[in-house]
Design a protein around this nucleic acid. Structure first.
Lengths: 359, 359
DNA sequence: CTAGTATTTGCATACGTATGCAACGCGCGC
DNA sequence: GCGCGCGTTGCATACGTATGCAAATACTAG
C-alpha cells in the first residue's frame, strides 16, 4: 500500500534522517554509497515513492508541461502530441493536457497556472493570443507550436514552426513547373498564422512564375467545410481550376474525395491536388498526396530545447522564433513537370530535417 | 507576476485571515458574502491563484487523472482522448499523459504514482496487465478503457469497453446474409482482449450461419502489417476470399487500399470489407467503410462515471466491467443482402448510444 | 430584552519534502 | 602530531494550503 508511506518512514527503517532519504532520491546530492544502498532497500521494502506535489511545493518546479490543443481529428496533432510526450518523458517531465473550449479561454489560463507548470506548449493553429500573453506575464515560459504571435505583441513568447512560407512557395513552383495555369487555393483558418504564411508564400511563388491565384475558397481547417469549398469552387466546368493547393493535408483528403467521387474528376489527370503537413495518411494508397512536410521530430526537438533552456537558466530569456525547414514530398496527386525541366521526383526519403535558424 | 503571491498576501490585502481566503476558494465552505467579495477583489488585484500542489498535499486529491496510451496513429485513441479530457475538465479534473514505452513498464508505474493521481485510465489495447495491477494495489482506482484483464487476475481493476463480441457477431451475420461464403478475418494484436472478443463473436456468428473462417491473417493493429497480411491472403486468385472482416478500421483502410490499388480488386463487387471502431475516416468518401461503431461518448461517460464514483466514496469498491452497446454502421464497402432478406440499410444516424450494463 | 442557536472567523497545526547550516568524521600533507 | 579541507549527516525550517477547534458574531424565538 503505497499512499501513506513517507520519506520519514523510510528514514526510520533505514536508521537515517529524513534528509538523508531526500538526498538519496535527488541526483547530485552527497550521500555515501552505503547509506544510499540502505535507504533504497528500505524504500523498496515499503514501496515508497517521493510525493511529486510536496517536492514541487519546495523546489518550485513541477516537472509538468502544460499542453493546450483544440482539435485532434487532424492527425498532425496527435502525432506531435505523442512525440512531445515521449520526448519529455525521457527527461522526467510529463504532459498535462488542456483542451481549448472556445468561450472560456480565461478559465483555461486560471487552470493552467494553478498547476504551476514549468512551461506551456500551445499547439493549436487557431488560439487567442491573449492566452499566451497571460501565461508569459505570469512568468511561465510559453512556446507556440506551429503558430506565431501577431507581429505587434512580442512579449516573452517563443515559437516553433516549419517553413510555412517556403513551403507555400515550393508548392507554387512545383505546380507552375508542371504547366498548370489555373491554380486555386483553399485556405485554412484565415486568421491563423499558418494559413497567412502558407498563402503568402504560395502567392509569391505563383507571382515568380507570372501567375496569380485563379480561385480561392476557405476550408477553415475543417474536413467538411473544405469539402463544401471544393464543391463550390469546381461547380462550373468552364473556368474550373486545373490545380489546387489545400492548406492542410487533412482538408486535402476531403477535397480529393469530393473531386473524385462527387464530381467525377480524375486526379492528377484533370486536376492536381497538393497539401501541407505530410500526415501519415498522405502516404496511404487512396491519396498518395503530394505535400510539404512539417518535420515533427525536429520541431518537437526544438520545442523541448527551448523549454529546457528556460528551465536551466532562471528567468525567461528573450523570445526566439525557430523555423524548422521542411521538404517537398512528391507523390501522385499532382501532375509533374516533364522530365528535365523541374526538380526531380524524390523517390524515397527526403533530405534530412535540420535544426532551424531564428527569425 | 503570479508566482510568489500566496493566500497570505491576499489575506493581508483583504484584512482577513489566511483561512478565510482558503475558504473563499473552496466551494461549500462557510464565508459571508461580504468577506468573499473583499477576498475575491484582493485576489484579482494581485493575480492570485491557489497552488494546486499545496492544495493536493493537504487534501490528498490532485484532481489529476493519469492516462496511459501507446499508439496515437489510430484515430480512435485521439478522439477518445479529446473526449476524455473535455469531460474531465468540466469537473475541474485534468489529464496527465503517459506514453507507454514498451521495455520499462515498471518505471511508468513509478512515475504515475509519484504524481498521486486520483485515478488512472489505461487506454491501450495492448498493455501489460501488471501495470494495472500494481496501480490498483497502490490504492488508486484504475479503469481499463477498451480492454479487460485476463479472466484470472480480477483485482480492483474496472473496465469499460464496447460490445466487441456482439459486434463481431453482427458483422458475421451481415456478411453471411449478403451471401458471402468465403469469409476471411484479419486479426489485430492476437493477445489483446479486443481482438479475442471480436474474433470469438465473429466465429460464433459465422457458425450460426453454418460457416467457418475461410482464411486468417494477422495485422497486429498496425497499418503496414495489415497491408501485408491482406496481400498475402489474396495472393492466389483460386481460393480468394469474397469478404474480409478486419479487426479495426485503421487496418481496414490499409486492406482496402491494398486490395483495390495493388491487386486491382473492386470493393464491394469482388470483395466486401468490414471494420471495427467507426473512426471518423470510415465515413470518408474513399472508404465508406461498413463497420461496427464503438460509441466514444458513452464509453467516456461510463469511464468518468466509474472514476467519480470512486472519488466520491472513499476506498475502492468492487471492480465493475461495463459493456457499452455499439451499433452496426452500414456504408458501401460491403455487399448487402438482397432487399427484404436481412437487416435494412441504415441511411443516416444509427440508434442513439445508450449507457451500458455490467458483465 | 434575553437566551439560545446558527453562522462566520481566526488560530494553530499538518501535509511531505528540500535545503542552509553546523557538526562530525576522515584522510592528507606538513 | 596537528591543522586543514572535504565529504556526510542531522537539525530545523520553509513551501502554500486546508481544516478542527474555539471564540466571536449575527440572528431567531420567546
Amino acid at each position: 500500500m503505497n499512499p501513506g508511506v513517507t520519506s520519514l518512514d523510510v528514514a526510520r527503517l533505514a536508521r537515517v534522517s529524513q534528509s538523508a532519504v531526500s538526498r538519496a532520491f535527488t541526483p547530485g546530492r552527497s550521500v555515501s554509497a552505503e547509506t544510499r544502498r540502505r535507504i533504497m532497500e528500505a524504500a523498496r521494502a515499503l514501496g515508497y515513492r517521493p510525493n511529486a506535489h510536496a517536492r514541487s511545493l519546495i523546489t518550485g518546479r513541477s516537472r509538468i508541461i502544460g499542453l493546450v490543443l483544440s482539435y485532434l481529428e487532424n492527425l498532425f496533432y496527435p502525432v506531435a502530441l505523442e512525440a512531445l510526450a515521449r520526448r519529455l518523458q525521457r527527461d522526467g517531465h510529463h504532459v498535462l493536457l488542456f483542451v481549448n473550449q472556445h468561450p472560456n479561454a480565461d478559465d483555461l489560463v486560471d487552470e493552467i497556472l494553478q498547476y504551476h507548470v514549468d512551461g506551456i506548449v500551445l499547439a493549436a493553429s487557431t488560439l487567442s493570443s491573449g492566452l499566451a500573453q497571460q501565461c508569459a506575464d505570469a512568468g511561465i515560459p510559453v512556446v507556440l507550436f506551429n503558430r506565431v504571435m501577431a507581429a505587434g505583441a512580442a512579449g516573452a513568447v517563443s515559437s516553433v514552426r516549419s517553413d510555412n512560407e517556403g513551403g507555400g512557395r515550393a508548392l507554387a513552383r512545383f505546380l507552375a513547373a508542371a504547366g498548370h495555369r489555373r491554380i486555386a487555393f483553399i485556405a485554412g483558418n484565415e486568421e491563423s498564422s499558418t494559413n497567412l504564411e502558407r498563402e503568402r508564400g504560395f502567392r509569391d511563388g505563383l507571382a515568380a512564375a507570372g501567375l496569380r491565384i485563379w480561385a480561392r475558397g476557405v476550408g477553415n481547417y475543417d474536413f467538411d467545410t473544405a469539402r463544401r469549398a471544393a464543391l463550390e469552387m469546381f461547380a462550373r466546368p468552364a473556368d474550373r481550376p486545373d490545380a489546387v493547393f489545400v492548406a492542410s493535408d487533412h482538408m486535402a483528403f476531403a477535397v480529393m474525395d469530393a473531386l473524385r467521387l462527387e464530381l467525377g474528376l480524375s486526379i492528377p489527370d484533370q486536376v492536381s491536388v497538393v497539401g501541407f503537413d505530410n500526415v501519415p495518411q498522405a502516404a496511404w494508397g487512396s491519396y498518395r498526396l503530394t505535400t510539404y512536410e512539417q518535420p515533427v521530430a525536429p520541431m518537437i526537438e526544438a520545442t523541448v530545447g527551448l523549454l529546457e533552456r528556460y528551465l536551466a537558466g532562471a528567468g525567461v530569456p528573450a523570445a526566439e522564433n525557430v523555423v524548422v525547414p521542411g521538404a517537398l514530398v512528391v507523390r501522385d496527386s499532382a501532375r509533374q513537370a516533364p522530365a528535365g525541366a523541374a526538380p526531380a521526383r524524390a523517390p524515397g526519403r527526403r533530405r534530412p530535417p535540420a535544426r532551424g535558424g531564428r527569425a
